[in-house]
Amino acid sequence: MSDSCDLAIVGAGIVGLAHALAAARRGLKVVVIDRDAQANGASVRNFGFVTVTGQQAGACWRRALRSRDVWAEIAPRAGIEIAHRGLAVAVRHPESIAVLEAFRETEMGAACELLTAGEARARMPALGADIRAVLWSPHELRVESRDAVPRLARWLAESHGIRFVRNTAVRGITLPAIETSAGRIRADAAVVCPGDDLVGLYADRIAAYGLTRCKLHMMRLAPDRPFRLGAAVMSDLGLVRYLGYAELPEAAALRQRLEREAADALANGVHLIVVQSADGSLVVGDSHHYATTPDPFAPEAVDRLILDEMERILAFGSFRVSERWIGTYASASDRLMLVDRPEAHVRIVIVTSGTGASTAFGIAEEVIADMFG
């Protein structure tokens, strides 16, 4: 195989696709190379939840806002359904209300509402009886990631002329040569988006960041009676995990309470996200366990912690678990993402916080602007 392009992108997950879009919008000829036949990693093993509210203040929050805007713009063009919009952070503890009140006073909370339990149930009747307050955010949107990511790739190919080379491993990059298992591609520049493959291309560069991998549990639930949730739902546990809340001084008291009352959940990195699909099923998670090579097993006890938290927040009757899966992503203790420059015209881009769907479009626009001015 021989081909020539302005930019070769290694990796067709959401981070790679975001860079392909940003480059194509600048009129660049783009080739995307991926080792799999279709999206199979973290980009489809998630909620499809584009989260703005709760992202760390500053660059991450601004990238999430921009990424949400890009999703909203391209989804109808690419035939991607937006399943629902908005976020309800439903809380049970007075310490959580203090965190939400403080968040409302920040720039990030300016468009959000702090609702009483009664006001919240009028919008979302499935909320449980113990809810004390709800932060309502208008910013979020949700897509079905296992469908949206393939549709996005197909639209990029059909509407922007981006060439996809699948089932192909990249063995080395010495610009202008990209050596692959299917032959050589000529490229003037390259962006490597390896996801959680930390020992492939530029392994020495990646090792310097001290990354590990995070494993998470997720489930799909089939409720026994139909109902509409109408927005994504989170709980008190999210306020000590999402940095937009957790870095507020008021979060310290909440953490102390949760360490006493929800120690098992914190130890397993459990916080609650619930989103709904068009068929009425719910995607529920998640947990966080860290290792260089996470084991492939999903203990029922961890799933039970997630479901117990959901049943404290939502009351919609009985359900069955129709699917279970695990996901893995690259993780760092000191950064949410990284952009490394091994050569003048090569970038390594890794989201290290599980926020690819929420921030990748914003990151990609910055990287492509830096590379191509």
Rank of each mutant, 00 (worst) to 15 (best):
E144H: 10
E144L: 11
R146C: 05
R146T: 04
R146V: 11
P150K: 09
R151M: 03
A153L: 05
A153V: 00
R154K: 07
W155C: 04
W155M: 02
L156T: 04
L156M: 05
A157Y: 01
A157T: 03
H160M: 02
G161S: 06
G161Y: 00
G161N: 01
I162K: 03
I162Q: 01
I162P: 07
R163A: 12
F164D: 01
R166V: 01
N167R: 10
T168E: 01
T168F: 02
A169P: 00
A169Q: 09
V170Q: 06
G172A: 11
G172E: 01
I173V: 13
P176S: 14
A177K: 12
A177V: 11
I178R: 03
I178K: 04
A182I: 00
A182F: 00
G183S: 13
I185F: 05
I185S: 09
A187Y: 02
A187I: 09
D188A: 15
A189L: 03
C193V: 11
C193K: 13
P194L: 07
P194N: 07
P194H: 10
D196S: 14
L198D: 13
L198S: 14
L198K: 12
V199A: 13
G200R: 14
L201W: 05
L201N: 05
L201F: 04
Y202I: 06
A203M: 04
I206Y: 06
I206N: 08
A207K: 14
A208H: 06
Y209R: 15
G210W: 07
R213Q: 14
R213F: 12
H217A: 15
H217E: 15
M218C: 11
R220C: 04
R220I: 04
L221C: 10
L221R: 13
P223H: 09
P223Q: 11
D224N: 14
R225F: 03
P226D: 11
F227A: 09
F227E: 09
